[in-house]
Amino acid sequence: MLNKPIGVFDSGYGGLTILKEIVERLPQYNYLYMGDNARAPYGPRSFETVYDYTLEAVKWFFSQGCSLVILACNTASAKALRSIQQKDLPQLAPDKRVLGVIRPTAEVIGYYSKSRHVGVLGTQGTVSSQSYLLEIEKFFPDIAVSQEACPEWVPIVENNAYDQPGTDEAIQTHLDAILQKDPQIDTLLLACTHYPMLMEKIRQFTPEAVSIIAQGGIIAQSLEVYLQRHPEIEQQCGKDGQLEFYTTGSTQDFDNHTANFFGRAVSSNLIQL
């Protein structure tokens, strides 16, 4: 078992794009990644189901010695984070913390847009939660936000179907749709950690004047600031520069995908929640 790792959770592989940026920025800490691949994707699932699954994962991370858990999953952040923070943590582990990816992104997205028109691309669960609309409004009330759910995009990534028939159409259709909703959009936020894997194709079907923002770097910087501001949490984090990976699905599938998402091969372990 790792010494007091920082936990990083995702419904599947997408959170590895976040973990990659975090490790590059903060390599000194120990990290424990877990993907709930057996029950992915979370996007179409109900609020109750996503909350139940996410809480199970958080409890598992706590049992592994984590004092800090990052929900590197927009759907879990949208549907489960607030309940876990407000309802569960005070009784379950008042000295531990669970953070998400939506608020840190909302805090800075306004700095990327000159037109003050932003598009949010996410899963059905993230979009229907309205979380980005609410959070961006808090920090940048002058920004107009349009949303587009892209339910086909996660399966494309999870199944390595980048070159399959219909993939380009599935990507172009949603990009055309959101830019038709608001032609003044100059910034597109990839509000799903899987979507950076589609960056090349998204860029292909997006006007050059429109910026495309992935979350990895934003979350890594936000975590660094958080640890600086909360020494009581930072001091509980082990600093041996070690990594461990777990999945609820096939370890072979996980390991085969990891090099694409994380940039290097890993050997994962199987768990059951």
Rank of each mutant, 00 (worst) to 15 (best):
A78S: 14
P27V: 05
Y31R: 00
A76C: 02
E135N: 05
D240L: 07
L270P: 13
C73R: 11
E200Y: 10
P5W: 07
Q204I: 13
I136R: 15
I219W: 08
Y195K: 09
Q221A: 14
F47C: 11
I271H: 12
G15S: 02
I22M: 06
Q252K: 14
H174N: 15
K59F: 05
G65A: 02
F62A: 06
Y111R: 14
I185D: 05
G65H: 09
D88G: 00
S63M: 05
A80Q: 03
S222I: 08
G7L: 00
V58T: 10
G249H: 10
V145R: 02
G263S: 06
P207T: 09
T105W: 03
T193V: 06
A106W: 13
N159M: 12
Q272R: 14
M199R: 15
Q228A: 13
A214R: 09
A259F: 04
T248P: 08
T206P: 08
D176K: 15
G249A: 10
K79D: 06
L223C: 08
I84C: 07
F47D: 15
A93L: 08
L175T: 14
P94A: 09
Q180A: 14
S11R: 03
R82K: 15
I109K: 09
P44F: 00
V108F: 07
L55N: 02
N74P: 11
M1N: 10
F254P: 13
A76M: 08
R82M: 12
Q221H: 13
N269G: 11
L32N: 00
E158P: 12
Q180E: 14
R39W: 03
D36S: 03
P141A: 01
Y29D: 04
R264S: 11
D176I: 12
L190Q: 08
A40Q: 10
G35Y: 01
L81I: 01
V127W: 03
Y112V: 13
D95L: 04
V266F: 03
Y13Q: 00
S146C: 12
V266L: 05
V210S: 01
K201F: 11
D163C: 10
I218W: 12
F245M: 09
L179N: 00
S131N: 07
P41F: 06
H257Q: 15
A170Y: 06
A170M: 12
Q147A: 11
E152Q: 14
D95R: 06
S77H: 04
Q91I: 08
A93K: 12
Q221T: 15
V98T: 05
Q184W: 01
A57Q: 06
G15P: 01
V145E: 05
L121G: 06
F205I: 07
L134M: 14
E137F: 14
R39D: 02
L99E: 07
Q130E: 13
Q124P: 09
L198G: 05
E148G: 11
I70T: 00
G166L: 11
E137N: 15
S131T: 09
D168V: 11
G119Q: 04
L227F: 01
S222K: 12
P5L: 01
Q235P: 04
P165D: 04
I84S: 06
F254I: 12
Y112M: 03
V108R: 14
I102K: 10
L19W: 01
H174I: 13
Q85C: 09
P90V: 14
V210F: 00
Q164L: 09
P231H: 02
T75G: 08
